[in-house]
Amino acid sequence: MTADSVEPIIRISHAWKFFGELTALNDVSLDVMPGEKVVICGPSGSGKSTLLRSINRLETVDKGTIIVDGQDVNSPDNDINKIRQELGMVFQSFNLFPHKTVLQNLTMAPMRLRKIPRPEAESRALELLKKVGISDKANVFPAMLSGGQQQRVAIARALAMNPKIMLFDEPTSALDPEMIGEVLDVMVTLAREGMTMVCVTHEMGFAREVADRIIFMDHGQVLEENAPQDFFGAPKHPRLQKFLNQIL
């Protein structure tokens, strides 16, 4: 296969989502290529989370199709649980399982869903914890960790399933400022390793550094989509210009 014949790994076509009267997604189309890093930004309530969550069907779109790795996520013929195993997700509020130790948080899904034997799952989990810089906390419960540590465990938990794609929904928004860096560092490392990433974030430094493309959403629409240089250097849409003035 030649480079230009590579298929997008995520293909969102004309997605619409309504919450009652509200149009949360307004004819959104977006392709993500394997290995690509896409950052989504926009004002609060613009539909960023809805778009991200519709990729792994935590939200179901009302119109349009979403194809992940060749499979329509909304088709009843496809097992959504299998598709989700390829889509790691990191939430703003970490959502670690508080009744499980850090290690168990990481081994639970691989053991149950990928049928990986415990010793193997545990050594892989320890490797991942080392990678995110908290190998000494393997046997504590999440409540013992700081926010930054919890979020790094959450990233490791998603990675433990060996997903093809990682989705991030404002992973640093709930963190104290001094902890944002440690989480972004992990994400940058992950990006360098070639992971396909879709990140909703307002960390523009991160976007500039790793994004191949930045998407600006407002009122459920994609208003602008560009490489970082032009996105920041030559924003075209007035609302993006206003948005950038506010946050930079």
């Binding site: 649980n81 989700r84 959502n95 639970m108």
Partner: peptide, 11 residues
């Protein structure tokens, strides 16, 4: 969030 985290892993 707990349900969403578990479902997003594939449970």
């Amino acid at each position: 969030g707990q349900t969403e985290a578990a479902r997003s892993l594939g449970f």
